[in-house]
């Protein structure tokens, strides 16, 4: 903004606006929250909690159904296996949601930003 004096040409102005916008984008893009969320420790804790919650909920549900119906270990085992599946699905969704940087949904500008080289490389 300081290097050239005199009246700026419209085309030049356009360019400068674009450049300034880019700089602003680059400055604000890697916001600390996103960066810290994808740090190794945080990620590991997130995935571990996802898996533990899945198994906990499904075993609890299976145990409760067993107690109500009196079919000792049948539903607990069934729900344990399904819970593993659900846990893996949740873990997969967490991981893929983060690596694509998009929290899904159309019209999500974050996804568009990623296409032209967003955070990447996690």
């Amino acid at each position: 903004m300081t290097q050239d004096n005199g009246p700026p040409e419209p085309s030049q102005l356009q360019q400068r606006i674009a450049a300034a916008r880019e700089r602003e984008e680059a400055r604000t893009r890697p916001d600390p929250a996103k960066r810290a969320m994808s740090s190794g420790y945080g990620m590991a804790l997130r995935l571990a909690i996802e898996m533990v919650a899945a198994l906990g909920v499904s075993v609890f549900l299976g145990y409760w159904i067993d107690k109500e119906l009196g079919m000792a270990p049948l539903f607990m085992i069934l729900f344990l296996i399904m819970g593993m599946g659900a846990g893996f699905i949740n873990v997969y969704r967490t991981v893929s949601g983060l690596t694509h940087g998009s929290l899904r949904g159309p019209g999500d500008y974050r996804r568009d930003a990623d296409k032209n080289g967003g955070p990447g490389g996690e």
Binding site: L45, R46, I49, E50, V52, A53, A54, G56, V57, S58, L61, F79, M82, G83, G85, A86, G87, I89, N90
Partner: peptide, 25 residues
């Protein structure tokens, strides 16, 4: 369908557990 239903039911637990675990740890 059962797996999706289960994964839907797991959401609140993992949501609450995450906040609790991070702060407590």
């Amino acid at each position: 369908i059962p797996i999706e239903v289960l994964s839907y039911l797991i959401r609140p637990v993992s949501l609450g557990l995450r906040l609790f675990a991070n702060l407590t740890a």
